[in-house]
């Protein structure tokens, strides 16, 4: 549940989601669910010329299972908080 809570805290921020098929999409994180499915708003594809069919997609839903990386803004990561949360989770809540 840690990463679910973690991503919930990032809602509203600008992130880049890189998929397992190498498609990278940048957009505002709109929501995330328990499977780490991600909804992005105001999306733009990083390599637009290679994926012309994505041109008119503004908002999208990405299935959690196809995500390889999520690139976050550095200021969105509080490492101390993450350390504490990780230790708490490892101890079993």
């Amino acid at each position: 549940m840690l990463f679910f809570s973690y991503f919930k805290d990032l809602v509203g921020r600008e992130v880049t989601v890189e998929l397992k098929n190498d498609l990278a999409i940048r957009g505002t994180l709109h929501s995330v669910d328990q499977y780490l499915n991600i909804k992005l708003e105001n999306t733009r594809v990083v390599d637009q010329d290679k994926y012309p069919h994505m041109l008119s997609v503004r908002n999208c839903f990405i299935r959690g299972s196809v995500v390889r990386y999520v690139q976050l803004p550095p200021e969105g990561v509080d490492t101390d908080l993450l350390h504490d949360a990780t230790r708490r989770e490892a101890r079993g809540g």
Binding site: L23, V57, R58, N59, F61, V66
Partner: peptide
């Protein structure tokens, strides 16, 4: 992989 809303204006 992805479900995208199509912006019919664009």
């Amino acid at each position: 992989v992805l479900i995208g809303e199509l912006d019919l204006e664009r």
